[in-house]
Structure formats: structure tokens, C-alpha cells
Amino acid sequence: MKNFEFSRATSLSDASLRTQEAGVLLMAGGTSLVDLAKCGVTEPDMVVDITRLGGLDQIEVSERGATLGALSRMAAVADHAGIKAEFPAIAQSLSLAASQQLRNMATIAGNLMQRTRCAYFRDPGAFPACNKRQPGSGCSALGGVTRNHAVLGTSRECIASYPGDLAVALLAFDATIETTDRRIPIGEFFLEPGETPHLETLLRPGEIITAIVVPASAAAHRSTYLKVRDRQSYEFAAASAAVGLQLEDDGRTIRDLRVALGGVATVPWRASRVEQALIGQVLDEGTVRQASLLAVEGAVAHGDNHYKIDLVPRVVTRAILTLGGLA
């Protein structure tokens, strides 16, 4: 890790101005930045710490929804009574992520911005080729060990999976990301790699996330985050699903369903086809199981990760049935 200058932003606009320069990086919790600097993936000339800026760590829950200040810590959101009550999937996505130490450090905006855990991306010394790090250099993961790589949203240039959990839950419930410049629906925020894997989000230089707003919904209220992994704890997902369910007054017909996937796609992945197939249907195991297969429509395996294509529909099925009281 080369040395860098460290400064504290005096205001959001100060931070915004300074991070428009090349080589200047914003720092919040620092868990990603310090890690990637040690890996040699990130080499800032200067980091600008924004954690001392006031007023950006508020968590507010009202009838209309939740507003999460960008600098709220993961642990604080996970343990927030209002979030746990109204957005269980969001709280669970956080408490099942990383460890409590990391959740105490990492902010929720920083969490959205975390980079892939692709081993090839994370080791520039061993694998110079990485289209995410160095556009046009190639993809070392293709043909390598790909057990944790994406099966959805991949391109010939990149198969790295988005590792986070929170963004998956936020995607399911149509969160909006507020920045210093604008409001971005989360569904548009993350960019699939396509031919430009180095472009990961819509954020422009100097643009800073200030808050995340999640509208209240019956589906969010009745939601869950199901995370499947080899180890019981402290591991990224092999596959995960954030699911919200609202039934009609008859108690059996699906009025609203939200399904988003983690650990299997290059970006947080909304399984809209599953939602469409089930809304209006009577909730029963066979129907759900059949519709959940649509979650992996278009999925492409790369050797070791084929199991994810089998696993995803099972995760989706279980999550829906659990919410429906059928599992």
C-alpha cells in the first residue's frame, strides 16, 4: 500500500469538490478502502474522511417508510427496532453480513459500494488481467476457480459477483438512493458489467450518497432475507434471496411479491419474472416451486458455479413458502 494523504471533509460540498479529482477517494467506515488498498487494488493519493460530518447517520422510520442516513452503521440499522419491525429483510440482510465488528465500522452507503470478492480482481500482483481493474486487460476468472462467481448478468468481460446483502434487500423494496446531485432508483444504480465492467454504479466523480429511502409496503413488512452459505456465519452468500409477500384478504392469493437475489449475479438481481408469475396466483408449494425456476432464466454457469443455478430456485421457494407459512 503506497502512502496517501488523509484529510477530513469540512462539509459535503467540500468532500464532493475534492473527490472530483482523480486519485482522491472518499472514506467512510474504511473497511473496503483499507482492505483494497492492502490488496493493491486501490491506490489513492488522498483519502477524504466524511465520517465526522454531522447529520448523516440518522435512521428514521415512519408510516411512509424508512430513511437511512448514508453514514448509519450497519449494526445500528440491523438493531433498529423500527427497521426490524417494518423491514425485517433489511435488518436480517445486515445482521447476516460480515461480523459485528465490521458492521460496527461499515456504513450503509459504503456497504452498497463494496467491490466484488472475485479472487482474481483482488490480486493484481498475481493476475494482471482484470477488465474491472484495467479495462481491456482481459478476465482471469474465466477458466479459473469460479465457485463463487456470478451466473446472472455476466458478460464475456466479467463474471464477478456482487457480494453484498443489504443492496439485495433494498432492491426488493424499491429503495431510492439520494445523492448530493439527485435521486436514483436502486434498480438503476448498479451497472451490469457488459463491455464496461469497470463502471459499477451510476455515481459520477464527486457525487456522494447522502441517504437511502425505502418506501413502506405490506410486502416489506412481511419479508425475510434467506442467506445460504457453506459456513454458518461470517461468510458471503453462496446464494441469497430477499423476499416480501403480501396476500389478498383471502389469505391465499398473492397480491404483491418481491424477490431479489444475492451472491449469484454481477449486481443485486431482481427476479421480476418470478414476481410476475406469482402475483395473482394462489400460494401453494407446487406453484411457487415452478415459478421460482424463472429466477435463473438466462443464467450461465462457468464451471464450478453451476450449483448456483440449482440452488437459487430452492432458496427463492423456501423464502416465499416460509413467509406464506408453508415451510
Binding site: V34, T51, L102, N104
Partner: peptide, 19 residues
């Protein structure tokens, strides 16, 4: 490397001293 910072447990390996 866990230490407490303002009473919360954090990882000191991913915390810059200046932070």
C-alpha cells in the same frame, strides 16, 4: 485485532490510526 472504539468493537487492522 478487535478493539473497542467509543465502546463499540471494531477491527483495528481495517482502521487507520488517523481515523
Amino acid at each position: 485485532c478487535t478493539v473497542l472504539v467509543d465502546g463499540r468493537r471494531v477491527l483495528s487492522c481495517l482502521t487507520l490510526a488517523v481515523q
